[in-house]
Design a protein around this nucleic acid. Structure first.
Lengths: 142, 142
DNA sequence: TTACCACTTCAAGTATACTTGAAGTCAAGA
DNA sequence: TCTTGACTTCAAGTATACTTGAAGTGGTAA
């Protein structure tokens, strides 16, 4: 079974060592063993937990939401309903985020079209485009 | 041309009045006129700007990124290349976010399947499912 | 006229999520 | 043996994005 030091995990997952210690302190990265000289020893389960943390964080989960989730999972047999509730809430919130991101993306593409055309118009001394003509223009999937 | 007070805008867009003043202070919501008794008067352009702010914020833009963007847009004719650069960077970052969110979503759906099956197994006194069987299971689009 | 309410400014406070600093321990290589 | 580098703890500091509090103003309704 492979084992890692803080430094190795830090490099592997691009997380500062201070953050790794912080995650342990606040309880979302538990059961880190120690050497006789009290240096941390990480194993596969910690890598996997950290990946979960990163993944959920990128979905906008707060530290306290992570704490809540892992605490329930810890005693999963007693908390199936609560876990399902929580997962469903998060699922809904992520679906909403995805819809919103799609919207932002479309707006960005519209803006890029607008400024690209403006640049062309400048170069060719033509009349400048109007944002109003782009504001609601449908955008192809890129 | 419709006009609004802070309170009205606050209610309309669900943004605290303190936040509206804050956005004005830091310069991302400029040109708010005042009554003779120095009360703020908002117009359509402010509503539109605030919607842009909300939209970009939900895509994870920081205040300083918004400041940078609006500052460039303010003098768009001199900054077309910089604006296009910035828009393209943001477009890429949003595409990445969308990919990551999709991943999180799939993981959540897997977890939901797992815990749903676990619940069934409990009720029917069957053997419990193993997370390893769900970990990489393809998930239908829901 | 008096009370109330929404507004004003400005400084200070708060929550979240780390990050940094100081002081010390330990194992390995020159 | 000495030094270096990676580790340790714990408290305090930082950045971001607001939020709150105190003290005051202006217009309207009873």
């Amino acid at each position: 079974m492979p084992q890692y030091t803080v430094g190795e995990i830090s490099e592997k997952l691009e997380i500062p060592t201070s953050t790794l210690r912080y995650y342990e302190d606040i309880g979302i990265l538990p059961n880190v063993k120690r050497t006789t000289s009290s240096q941390r020893v990480y194993e596969e389960c910690h890598v996997s937990r950290l990946k979960t943390i990163l993944c959920f964080k990128c979905a906008g989960f707060s530290i306290s939401q992570l704490q809540a989730f892992f605490m329930l999972e810890n005693a999963e047999k007693d908390n199936i309903d609560a876990i399902l509730d929580l997962l469903d809430t998060h699922k809904t919130s992520i679906k909403n985020q995805m819809v919103q991101l799609e919207e932002v993306y479309i707006q960005l593409v519209r803006k890029i079209h607008y400024y690209t055309d403006m640049k062309k118009a400048f170069v060719q001394h033509e009349s400048l485009p109007k944002w109003n003509d782009y504001k609601h223009k449908p955008v192809k999937n890129e």
